[in-house]
Design a protein around this nucleic acid. Structure first.
Lengths: 175, 175
DNA sequence: AAATTTACGTCAGTCATATTGACTTATTTC
DNA sequence: GAAATAAGTCAATATGACTGACGTAAATTT
């Protein structure tokens, strides 16, 4: 923080551009702020371990999907092998993730979270879960389903099926 | 892309951890995927200009809030002055943003988008707007409001009022 | 059986975004 | 006049991402 001067006294002159009526600017900005704060809790916790957001993402998906292949992880995260390398290596070296050769195809290195790994993943998940729970708390059941559908429909159409499978319980998020 | 091998043949063994019943894991992951794809359209467009996501954020909020102070921008983005410096400097040098001393407090440097700046901001906004519009298309009116409330409630409680003001039209996003 | 493809890893170099810490300048407020 | 504020700047560093090139082992194709 140190140097940042919080205040945001937004009593600015704000003549503001005539927002083109068809552009849902509020949703664009809300998504930005929602995500900014959504990531802030785990980021703070990860700092204790010397990990960053990239470690979180890898650990989360491996913890949730034991036996994930490296290739799958790359597709999920939309990053390159080289980007993954350092992060994954650290997680393996510090005993959060372990790799096992695939039983059927031995070229594969299947990824599993260790107990340590599951524990950290769960801790981080709970932080985000708490924020989500309270954000959904006011909403009626249909509202929660609407929020869920909205997020699902924000995903590229050709990725939705994969995501739905990954998430598992493919309940009601039809296109 | 080059090296990334898309496939995600998620017919993994997936014995999966017993998801603690109170943790809405699906929402955590959906938010991740939604945001990943939400940023992908503008990222691609920005690459043409040699700009990144940071430039987008700065340009967007300046375009939407003419006369914004540097301090306000730092609070909005939750970054430090030093991080902003390079990005802002580039946007000023390449004539997307201009700075004017505050008419009342001359220490301030108020930020305005130029025509060029507004044009680029609008172009990027339209990309994101299109995705949002189609994500909301299936939903009934209450569903759209629910999605909006959900996002709003994801914001840190002590930041909500500022965000609501910034967004302007404080319609129905009550706490 | 040889050739090709695939899964994964790795070396090397680069870029973008962000950080901390320290210091300067101009201006306003007390 | 002193203190506080808004902004800018220098320097060093970390993190997450990229491209390109190459190696190795194992599976698949021909």
């Amino acid at each position: 923080m140190t140097d940042v001067n919080f205040s945001l006294s937004v009593d600015r002159p704000s003549p503001a551009r005539p927002a083109p009526a068809d552009v849902p600017i509020d949703m664009i900005e809300l998504l930005f702020f929602a995500y900014r704060d959504f990531t802030s809790d785990p980021d703070a916790a990860l700092a204790e371990f010397g990990f960053g957001r990239a470690h979180h993402r890898v650990l989360h998906f491996v913890s949730r999907n034991p036996g994930l292949r490296v290739t799958d992880l790359l597709a999920i995260l939309s990053i390159t092998k080289q980007s993954l390398a350092r992060v994954l290596k650290q997680l393996v070296e510090e005993d959060y993730i372990l790799q096992e050769p695939g039983p059927v195809d031995r070229r594969e290195r299947l990824l599993f979270a260790t107990e340590r790994g599951h524990a950290l993943a769960l801790r981080l998940m709970r932080l985000q879960a708490e924020r989500i729970r309270s954000a959904l708390a006011d909403l009626p059941q249909e509202g929660r389903e609407a929020a869920r559908s909205f997020l699902y429909n924000m995903i590229d159409p050709d990725q939705r099926a994969d995501v739905a499978q990954l998430i598992g319980h493919n309940k009601d998020q039809a296109p």
